[in-house]
Design a protein around this nucleic acid. Structure first.
Lengths: 193, 193
DNA sequence: CGACGACAGTCAACACCGTTGACTCAGGAG
DNA sequence: CTCCTGAGTCAACGGTGTTGACTGTCGTCG
């Protein structure tokens, strides 16, 4: 309702006020984190008065949550043979093309002092990952196992980012895929007992 | 050198200035995170001028790093049979008695926008965990596998905290120990290939 | 056509933050 | 006694997120 966006607007055209703020905010939040980017800096980059940013989006945290929703980001492919899904998930998580997603998740984790951010984090892992994975898992405790697999992947991303290519270089990515994939696989395969 | 701490000081005696600041800082950082606690609040709780806190410790971040060093915190026991070490590690990480350590690590992760905090995080996992575990692992890639096991545990702690006993209640802790322990075990056991 | 109300945008200010410089003042050395 | 050094105090700086009062512009109605 009332969505009167111009049809002939090119993709790279200077975006309108609100959109400019959202783009600037996303970029700066990804790059410098929540605490490291100020509302005034976002407003400056978007050519807008800082007070307007608050007017439009409610608060800095509301803007943060709106812009880091991770909707319209690619989602891991859970189809295909189950017995190699572990490796495929790790490969997906560490793929160079997923750097944006990794940075978004990192930014969210680092801002998760706030309970609304934690809630958003829960919602993201649940709807984008756990709910989709649980339908493919056989055996008991499928939902708990899905959550634990999400934890494994989260831990890997966390370490990958903290390590800063210091010990885990790109050369060892293949080995990580094999090894960590096997660890995921231990939770993908139905428990033996 | 110069460590003239009184011998007869009882443990609960009102601590001297610097010590009072450190205790207040640790408690508030654990409880409300780095961004959520102000130098002024720490100084107020310790009954000290805010400027003195900066004088004594250099900066808020320096105080944070000094107080969250995780030295003198219990360290996981890596002795005992290797084929059940996975479960024991998970049980240790989720033990009620380790709540302080979990909160310390959480606070560090959430403050890891700063590269010095990331460096401290790297140092902690390396010296308190990886270096000790790598000597017990057989088979190839022992160091990388140790790092990956640390990642798994970090992811579990992260999820455990974000979940806020919403889905993973204390009742399912035993199941988590079994399941996630098996996942750790996949990296503890030497790769088959 | 002119008056009016709603509303987007602007600006200064608030309370708070981490940090610093100038100051006071007690205590030891010459 | 005088001087000096060091610790503790206080006000202030530049920065933060946010808000209230103000402006100007536009559509609507008498």
């Amino acid at each position: 309702m009332g969505d009167d966006r111009r049809v002939e607007t090119t993709e790279t055209a200077p975006p309108t006020g609100r959109e400019a703020v959202e783009r600037a905010a996303l970029g700066m939040f990804e790059e410098q984190g929540y605490a490291g980017t100020s509302v005034r800096a976002i407003a400056g980059a978007a050519g807008v008065d800082p007070a307007l940013v608050i007017r439009w989006f409610g608060s800095k945290e509301d803007l943060f949550l709106r812009v880091l929703s991770l909707t319209e980001k690619p989602v891991p492919d859970l189809t295909g043979p189950l017995d190699t899904l572990g490796e495929r998930l790790v490969a997906f998580a560490l793929a160079p093309g997923q750097r944006d997603v990794r940075r978004d998740l990192t930014a969210l984790v680092r801002a998760s002092d706030s309970s609304s951010v934690r809630s958003r984090l829960r919602q993201i892992t649940r709807t984008l990952f756990v709910e989709r994975l649980v339908e493919r898992l056989d055996g008991p405790n499928a939902e708990l196992r899905s959550h634990l697999i999400a934890s494994q992947l989260g831990g890997l991303l966390q370490s990958w980012d903290v390590a800063e290519d210091q010990n885990v270089a790109a050369a060892s990515r293949d080995r990580i895929i094999t090894l960590y994939g096997a660890a995921l696989q231990a939770l993908i395969d139905p428990p033996v007992e």
